[in-house]
């Protein structure tokens, strides 16, 4: 597996203290990406390790998975390394380790992973395929399909919406789309735009005035709550 970063964080990408692996490579090119160094699998930019090596490392980290913690795979886009990821997640469940993935949900086989995932965190960046493509380089038809499957699956999932001025800073459209589903197993997390990763971009950073106002954020949350959609803050 190709890993470009790893480390622990507390209660950011799943519950408790978690060991987070960033898997290299992504099929999107989000203009605001805060981990651009993980977009392309360039030799020298990642470490290659076997499933067994990662498993051994994770098992050695067990004492650190306190407060309901465990392992989270993010990226890049973790599902680009689908087969190895699936194998690893299966082994982790056998070892009773709490698992989470954070994904853009564009992989058609995403739901095959659900039986060995305790916490699914999936992005839903836009409800309009064309705008999504314009800002990320790819349509999100599969994300829609996966969202529907996740709603039906009953797995507890967090849907993350990065809110960016000029891209998606009103809740209209989102709410209309989401409320057509039974979302009782879904929590929505509204992530206001930030520029923590801007300095890491080697090619030009093209988001301008991406920050949203407190009012935008509040109107987002209010619209969701008013329509029976659960909001969480991590």
């Amino acid at each position: 597996m190709k890993i470009f970063q790893k480390g622990f964080n507390y209660s950011q990408d799943g519950p408790g203290n978690r060991l987070v692996y960033h898997l290299s490579g992504c099929n999107l090119k989000c203009r605001w990406c805060s981990n651009p160094e993980g977009m392309v699998q360039k030799p020298g930019k990642y470490t290659e390790v076997t499933v067994q090596e990662i498993l051994d490392e994770i098992i050695s980290c067990k004492p650190m998975f306190f407060s309901g913690g465990g392992v989270t795979f993010t990226g890049g886009e973790p599902t680009l390394q689908f087969d190895e990821l699936k194998k690893l997640l299966t082994l982790l469940k056998k070892n009773e380790i709490n698992t989470a993935i954070e994904t853009n949900a564009t992989h058609p086989r995403l739901c095959e992973l659900l039986p060995c995932i305790d916490h699914l965190i999936m992005d839903f960046k836009h409800f309009n395929k064309d705008i999504h493509k314009e800002w990320t380089g790819l349509e999100n038809t599969v994300t829609f399909e996966n969202f529907e499957r996740v709603c039906n699956s009953k797995i507890n999932a967090i849907v993350r919406i990065p809110v960016i001025n000029g891209f998606n800073n009103t809740p209209d459209g989102f709410v209309e789309y989401f409320k057509t589903f039974d979302t009782h197993n879904i929590s929505f997390e509204i992530l206001p735009y930030h520029e923590f990763g801007k300095v890491k971009w080697e090619s030009p950073y093209t988001v301008e005035n991406g920050f949203i106002t407190k009012k935008d954020l509040e109107s987002f949350e209010k619209a969701f709550i008013n329509n029976g959609l659960k909001i969480i803050h991590m």
Partner: peptide, 12 residues
Amino acid sequence: TNGMGFRILSNM
């Protein structure tokens, strides 16, 4: 260079 969690695990 891998952060607090790994450092504590070594330390332990």
